[in-house]
Design a protein around this nucleic acid. Structure first.
Length: 335
DNA sequence: CCAGATGATTTAAT
DNA sequence: ATTAAATCATCTGG
């Protein structure tokens, strides 16, 4: 008689509970937490536990760096050390939470079981209780994960943001890059292979080459005038190179090597003229034998803007045409 | 310290 | 995926 009554009471209670608060649970994936988890995993914080291993690897790398040490390996190892620290904290906290959670769950379960002798409590209800507890604790875990993510992000921005420690390329590297750029001025988009070649020659990475060309293209286009000097200079240089290569045996009459700088900066237009003159003077040698590249955009003072299809539209180039800020530059400074 | 140069990143379009 | 454009953060020379 007693068990029957118990079960009936349980049933009734179950129904009321269900009616009062529908089972709107079951949303385990929780996109928020998924993203955090992914991030932590990607950052190597929550992955397989190999803290010691990674630290050892970092140390080994640093040691192997040896004499050159020009890489950022030292700072990288520093970064890794801090990351390992964060990971350690994260794991210990996580463990603590899990332990507390299971402890608390056990406690509650025991309590409920005890009371189920005097109170209508079905096993199902206990289950639900446990689920609720777990949810609570997992929300705490999410907080932990979130703060860990934040810490990692801060660390990352402080150590890995390359902008923060940008170094200019050395003279020779920019020389090589500029040479390529101005000798392919009609189509300054190096192929993947060309990029690799340039990267090797300049001791930089391929993406750095890409960055450089991206910047160069946009900045050249933006203000062609500012780059005329440079353009002419490199045009002459490559012309001289080509000439010296092709006419090595013949009369080595190469007086103009503006590379040596000496008298530095004359006026812009004069530089252009000089360079153009030099270029034209060298032209009859062997250059432009038809096999040459596209129409070099040298000296727009002489060849008004061949406009080689990239750089097609938009801004005026300012130098080629008189840069008159239209009449009165009266901007709206009045109040 | 400032202004310009410069390498890197971000955003959006293709 | 690659690029243009804008923007950021730093470097450099005055």
């Amino acid at each position: 008689m007693k068990p029957a009554l118990f079960s009936v009471l349980c049933e009734i209670k179950e129904k009321t509970v269900l009616s009062i608060r529908g089972v709107q649970d079951e949303d385990p994936p929780d996109p928020q937490i998924m993203r955090l988890d992914n991030m932590l995993l990607a950052e190597g914080v929550s992955g397989p536990e190999k803290g010691g291993g990674s630290a050892a690897a970092a140390a080994a790398a640093a040691a192997a760096g040896g004499s050159p040490g020009s890489d950022g390996s030292i700072e990288h190892s520093d970064y890794r050390a801090k990351l390992a620290q964060i990971r350690q904290i994260y794991h210990s906290e996580l463990e603590k939470y899990e332990q507390a959670c299971s402890e608390f769950t056990n406690h509650v379960m025991n309590l409920l079981r005890e009371q189920s002798r005097t109170r209508p409590i079905s096993p199902k209800e206990i289950e639900r209780m446990v689920a609720i507890i777990h949810r609570k604790f997992s929300s705490i875990q999410m907080q932990l994960k979130q703060s860990t993510c934040e810490a990692v992000m801060i660390l990352r921005s402080r150590f890995l943001d390359a902008r923060r420690k940008r170094r200019n390329f050395n003279k020779q590297a920019t020389e090589v890059l500029n040479e390529y750029f101005y000798s392919h001025l009609s189509n300054p988009y190096p192929s993947e292979e060309a990029k690799e070649e340039l990267a090797k020659k300049c001791a930089i990475t391929v993406s750095q080459v890409s960055n450089w060309f991206g910047n160069k293209r946009i900045r050249y286009k933006k203000n062609i005038g500012k780059f005329q000097e440079e353009a002419n200079l490199y045009a002459v240089k490559t012309a001289v190179d080509a000439a010296s290569v092709s006419a090595q045996a013949s009369q080595a009459n190469s007086p103009a090597t503006p590379n040596s700088g000496s008298s530095g900066s004359y006026s812009l237009s004069h530089a252009g003229d000089a360079a153009a003159a030099a270029f034209l003077g060298l032209r009859p040698l062997h250059l432009s034998g038809g096999a040459g590249e596209a129409p070099l955009n040298v000296a727009p003072t002489l060849q008004p803007q061949v406009s080689d299809s990239w750089q097609d539209s938009t801004e005026p180039s300012s130098i080629t045409s008189p840069t008159g800020p239209p009449g009165s530059v009266h901007s709206d400074t009045s109040n």
